[in-house]
């Protein structure tokens, strides 16, 4: 048995009494909103105007949460089932056009499974340079090619 300093019960009294006068560490969450950091991975948002229909995201998605449909005229509609989504961000990682972006909106609970299926309707390509809508991520490495 290694030598230990003198023990006595009730060692926590000072910090307990200090806690009494400190602001609580917990918050009344649903009433007080909680903000997640900017790079948090929650609700995926698809900027369909940039989509080129390569379906890398569909092939890579671990849970089959994404569907891309060709609506003609080089327009694509994306459907994401938030109930299946793992929020891993692999789709955003592999997308060559940075069409998919994960936002920090994490309050996704719903009473109905159907309402978790989000459809991003096809949009025509913007006339001007589309680079502005893509959110550049810090030091994004190149995506593995097919």
């Amino acid at each position: 048995m290694a030598k230990t300093p003198r023990r006595r019960p009730g060692r926590m009294i000072p910090s307990l009494l200090r806690s009494l006068f400190r602001r609580p560490a917990t918050t009344r969450y649903p009433f007080v909103k909680w903000e997640m950091p900017d790079r948090f991975r929650a609700r995926p948002v698809v900027h369909t105007e940039n989509c080129i229909g390569c379906k890398m995201c569909v092939r890579n998605c671990p849970s089959g949460a994404i569907q891309i449909e060709d609506m003609g005229e080089k327009m694509f509609q994306a459907t994401i089932d938030l109930g299946r989504c793992l929020y891993c961000g692999q789709c955003a990682f592999v997308c060559p056009k940075k069409t998919i972006e994960l936002t920090k909106d994490f309050e996704l609970a719903a009473f109905d499974r159907a309402s978790l299926v989000v459809v991003y309707h096809a949009k025509p390509k913007p006339v001007e340079e589309p680079a502005a809508s893509a959110q550049p991520k810090a030091a994004e490495p190149q995506a593995p090619a097919a």
């Binding site: 790079r39 929020y87 891993c88 961000g89 810090a138 593995p144």
Partner: peptide
């Protein structure tokens, strides 16, 4: 959460390196 984007499932690894 700030570094990786999640509190538990960091999803940092990809084959060949890290994602972020």
């Amino acid at each position: 959460a700030e570094l990786t984007g999640n509190r538990v499932h960091y999803a940092m690894n990809v084959i060949g390196g890290v994602k972020r």
